[in-house]
């Protein structure tokens, strides 16, 4: 049983780490602000979610009680990430940041 739990924890940890890395890679690689916004809002949130799931599985097993504490952080991140992304997008449109020329459509005037 121990080994199964260890494997599950390890897999969650690795998935989380890889997604967080991809999110930050997006932040560095993508060419304009609106594109960069996509990496952190999705990938990083899931990355942290994975790590927290690992902690939940591990502590629930090592203490023999269901340890749902951690879910609160994930829940909070899932509620707050879209809100901060929306606010930052509004701020960027207000400042009329440049976006890539082949972007179709136009941002609204703020």
């Amino acid at each position: 049983m121990d080994i199964v739990i260890e494997y599950i924890t390890a897999i969650f940890l690795l998935i989380g780490g890889v997604f967080a890395l991809i999110g930050s890679l997006g932040l560095v690689r993508l060419p304009d602000f609106f594109l960069r916004l996509h990496g952190p809002t999705k990938a990083t949130t899931l990355g942290v979610g994975g790590t927290i799931m690992a902690s939940l599985v591990y502590f629930s097993w090592s203490e023999h009680t269901l340890h749902l504490h951690e879910i609160l952080i994930t829940l909070f991140l899932f509620i707050s990430a879209p809100v901060s992304a929306h606010m930052l997008a509004k701020a960027a449109m207000h400042r009329e940041l440049k976006y890539r020329e082949d972007t179709r459509g136009k941002p609204w005037k703020q």
Binding site: T9, L13, G16, A20, G23, S24, L27, F33, R36, L37, G39, P40, T44, T45, G47, V48, T51, I52, A54, S55, Y58, S62, E70, I73, L77, A81, S84, L88, A91, A92, R95, L97
Partner: peptide
């Protein structure tokens, strides 16, 4: 631009949450 820096800071705090949770895991 400024929004870029704020977005980077935002991502940093989210990642630091994961680092803290990881540290908690490693120290039990």
């Amino acid at each position: 631009s400024l929004p870029d820096r704020v977005l980077a800071l935002d991502t940093m705090y989210v990642n630091s949450i994961a680092l803290i949770v990881l540290y908690g895991l490693s120290s039990g």
